[in-house]
Design a protein around this nucleic acid. Structure first.
Lengths: 163, 163
DNA sequence: TTGCTCCTCACGTCACGTGAGGTGGC
DNA sequence: TTGCTCCTCACGTCACGTGAGGTGGC
């Protein structure tokens, strides 16, 4: 019983929960033209999505969260890609196929370069944090070797000028 | 002539340009208590910053852009770290030093774990993009090997049902 | 039939952007 | 002295959050 996962349909609440966003976010993206539900849904009907919708929304969230793109930038990307996908799926000639592939390639490469740039800055950040951790460790070790005993209760008589 | 880079002072516009933000952003962060300029500056005087201010602002921007933290979360982190730094710089006892180091360590480790999580999701993203690129390449190669000649102009007589 | 999820406004919020109008330092 | 950068409001914008009040499907 139940449709196979591939062809299943989802309501907005299910999609939201799966991807860790609110339904408001999904409706807002629809308002911007970033994500269109299936079927007609003329005024008031419940929105319906499928696996493809989920995949596309996931892509939007990656571009937003991992690369920090604005929704306008993401929309531009999605429109370019959508046009290519449309051509690809509507019985294109071989010449059309060549053109679509030639235009899709730089689109993907640009994203990959953004990802690489992020990876580099993240690596630098990680290196700094590890260096800070090492410094802390060294100072702790130095203090362990120092005259003050590890069990604090015995150091009551430390000299101090005030009082 | 001119003060050495270490002790130089900066106006808000210089700081903004160096870090790629607007002066508005810097003033907003001050409003939230995220970044306090040097000196008094009672009502209307120009804000002055030093190298330390720049370093702290840079840290804020990293947490915002690379880890996607909210300014509230960053503020909480900055306050914890600020308190520890204060203790550290005001002639602490050895016991204070131990405590500061013991509290600073998990603070840095938490950040490092966030960075690592991001690195993992970014790697996955990069892998997907590279896979897509390979698929595109393969399809292009397959089309190159296909009967349609590479130079488009010679394919005028392609058969088509419509007209 | 009863909840539960969905729907559409619509105002609120966070993190700034963008002028208006004015003062101060190189 | 003249620009240029700075200042403080203050309203606008982007990307949603958060109810209010109501309808529809399992």
């Amino acid at each position: 019983m139940g449709a196979p996962e591939e062809t299943r349909n989802y309501r907005i609440g299910e999609v939201a929960e799966r991807l860790g966003v609110t339904t408001r976010t999904i409706r807002y993206y629809e308002e911007l033209g970033l994500l269109v539900p299936l079927g007609d849904r003329r005024e008031g009907g419940h929105r319906i999505y499928d696996g493809g919708s989920i995949a596309r929304l996931q892509q939007v969230l990656k571009l937003r969260d991992l690369l920090g793109l604005s929704l306008d930038e993401i929309l531009a990307l999605a429109e370019e890609e959508g046009a290519l996908r449309d051509t690809w799926e509507n019985d294109p000639s071989d010449r059309d196929r060549r053109r679509v592939l030639a235009q899709a390639q730089p689109l993907i490469m640009r994203q990959l370069e953004l990802v690489r740039a992020r990876q580099i800055t993240l690596s630098r950040f990680a290196r700094e944090l590890r260096k800070t951790l090492r410094t802390i460790e060294q100072r702790r070790a130095a203090l362990e070797a120092a005259p003050v005993p590890p069990s604090g209760l015995t150091s009551a008589g430390r000299s101090s000028a005030a009082r």
